[in-house]
Design a protein around this nucleic acid. Structure first.
Lengths: 190, 190
DNA sequence: GGGATTAATGCAAATTTTTTGCGTTAGTGG
DNA sequence: CCACTAACGCAAAAAATTTGCATTAATCCC
């Protein structure tokens, strides 16, 4: 079931993995995920179902893999001038992306697999993004971020509310950031 | 798929639902959840598989229902004297229960169903527990809790770390509570 | 490079799960 | 007590999953 660091990751395996992932991506835009099955994916990918069963085990593991791949951030966090405004911009975008139906579905998929550590990888991406904001702040001469604290104070509440309560609005994101970085970098470092 | 508030909730339906739930509870202690299937549950419950398929749709929905039922707190939060120590005791127990393998599995199950709002219900239980601590505090003459703030500052970080990072230890729970209720009710209200 | 080795795939049969049509049972309302 | 109908049981059909074996193609070693 371990897809990464396979024993024989050469050409064919990688090609099939890419083909299957692409098939899932394409099919998720055409049909409801309730009617997405492994035979359907296999046909679209030009692969035998048994190949998918042997490599991923079941649909959940496959969707988990696809989701964690899609959750990887494409770019660095936007540079808005200060650590606080960077964090605010990042948090707002993060909340919006994760609140969407596809976002929630991806989170569910990532967490669905008990064996894989996809959830940890997903959090790792977040950690890297926050670290990037912190590093950039220090390069400017600002104070860096306590990334662990930001996880607790900003990221965790956003995720919790999306999953268990209701998607946080922009005002709430702002309040979370304000609590994490009280009175810091207000328009111009006071 | 809507199990609650059915059109005809009388004797038989309730009996079958209880039987199926009991079967799932019993089987989860005997076998790994990977080998738990609807036909197995049906046989144990003395019911036809098609009945389960028609009422719950699939295994995920059924497990979600069972999990949210098991996640309902059995008792009031312990009364330890002050709101802060109550909250700390509650948070430690919550973290420990949810960190366990069965706890994590239940959370996954609850979140797995896209249609049901089991996750919201689960959070509702937490809200009630926190509200009970708050009410008791006010009855004592203490200040009550800002439950929303506690959700953000204590519950959300615990859940986030369990799901995406690593289970929080007792010290971290204490730090979260300290951040939520700074310098309040320290052994004797200063 | 070239051949031996073997992980990974394709194929098809066997198994298991899921769906579906229809008769029966048992709550529900009059 | 009777009519009505939601929910169930049963069995056949359809679909998905597993599994054994032959084939393909990376990887390793020379």
């Amino acid at each position: 079931m371990v897809v990464k660091e396979r024993v024989r990751p050469g050409g064919r395996s990688a090609r099939i993995q890419a083909s299957v992932h692409a098939a899932v991506d394409a099919l998720l835009e055409q049909m409801d995920r309730a009617e997405l099955t492994i035979p359907v994916i296999a046909e679209r990918a030009g692969v035998t179902p048994s190949t998918i069963y042997r490599r991923w085990g079941n649909l959940g593991e496959l969707l988990s893999d696809v989701a964690v791949k899609r959750l990887r951030p494409a770019a660095e966090p936007a540079d808005t001038g200060t650590a606080k405004s960077d964090l605010l911009a990042w948090a707002e975008q993060y909340a919006e992306e994760m609140s969407s139906e596809v976002g929630r579905a991806m989170i569910r998929d990532v967490m669905a697999s008990p064996t894989e550590n996809n959830a940890e990888r997903c959090c790792g991406y977040t950690y890297e993004q926050l670290q990037a904001i912190s590093d950039r702040a220090e390069a400017r001469g600002e104070a860096g971020l306590d990334v662990e604290a930001v996880l607790d104070l900003v990221v965790a509440p956003i995720m919790y509310r999306i999953l268990f309560l209701a998607p946080p609005d922009v005002a709430h994101c702002r309040a979370l950031v304000e609590r994490a970085l009280p009175g810091q970098g207000q328009k111009r470092g006071g």
